[in-house]
Design a protein around this nucleic acid. Structure first.
Lengths: 183, 183
DNA sequence: GTCGAATATAGGACTAGTCCTATATGGAGT
DNA sequence: ACTCCATATAGGACTAGTCCTATATTCGAC
């Protein structure tokens, strides 16, 4: 149930509409927390019903009215509690590894094809993250902590993408040239 | 809906009961595909209803009867189709990154504590994977493809765990010693 | 001039997964 | 004596998330 906390986190920095929240997610947090548009609005509704945020309706002429959400004290408290709560162990699913695990029936050539597909996705992701990192670099020596942390999540994505590519390359060469399989 | 495919993958190698399947998951695939026990049995039921697997009941004296599942042709076909289907882009959630992204209000010291907690989990994971890798090493020069691929998923976990630790260390030292924050 | 994208919100239907509980018994540990 | 763990399967309640659709307008592209 962390989408709620993400929503609170964003809204705590400044009042936003659901639409803006969606933008914020897709431009800054998409690679580690994809947010479904419907789910976002539902989460906002629930947060308001629970008294964590409040909304004011801003009327617009030729567009649907905007609902501007602001955080309330209970919301800020919930955010704080979440930040201080113990880290639960990761239980993430890796569809690619699952596939690889059972891919033997594709034969070595088929597996290599699979690895190549995966590699190009990883490269694509890496270049996207590189571009993001380049477009918002912390050039000054003492950026605000928040900025640094946001940048750090980008760095994390890049580090993992690089690790993925290296691992893929090693596995590929091992499979392509069976002589090298010492250990 | 990949648990189904994982189940088919396991059952295709040899007939198994739900219980054995649970063991197989937790000992070999847990780090990239946690399988809930209830969900496993439900998936088996559905797979049988869909004609992908069949089960024979093995009566036991002082234990509940075992239901031994075997794969059927349609199941094998479904497995093959899945293996050949296009790789969809990853949309995994990273609760830790989400937290870090919004962790500025903890202050530098609080964030460092968070990083340290994360680091010890990562180290713990890495040592678990190291132990697994050591206990089942492909010592012979030409192991079967299936064995190699299963080993490769372990290697993937290790590579990512190492990348995570390195990233954490870099971030930590950058936060702990603000002078070094060039770029 | 038509088609899609951006702006802006929202509901319906569905699915996979989680957590808890139930049932039954034998064996190992303290 | 008591509790916990392993064996073995299964249902109930719930939740978060996905996918699709609806509504309404304006602007730019081709």
């Amino acid at each position: 149930m962390s989408l709620l906390h993400a929503v609170l986190g964003f809204v705590a920095t400044q009042p936003m509409t659901g639409y803006e929240l969606g933008k914020a997610f897709s431009t800054t947090a998409a690679h580690f927390w994809p947010a479904d548009q419907s789910q976002l609005y539902r989460t906002l509704h629930r947060a308001e019903a629970d008294g964590l945020v409040e909304s004011t309706t801003v009327e617009q002429a030729s567009r649907p009215d905007r609902r501007l959400y602001s955080i309330l004290e209970p919301g800020r408290a919930a955010l704080k509690t979440w930040l201080a709560s113990p880290l639960e162990p990761d239980t993430s699913r890796e569809p690619f590894l699952l596939r690889l695990f059972f891919a033997a029936s594709l034969g070595a050539a088929g597996v290599i094809e699979l690895l190549d597909q995966r590699r190009s996705s990883a490269v694509e992701l890496l270049t996207t993250l590189d571009a993001l990192a380049a477009s918002a670099p912390p050039k000054f020596s003492k950026p605000a902590l928040a900025i640094r942390l946001q940048y750090a999540t980008l760095e994390s994505g890049r580090a993992h993408a690089r690790a993925e590519i290296t691992w893929l390359d090693e596995l590929r060469s091992q499979l392509a040239d069976p002589k090298e399989s010492t250990r």
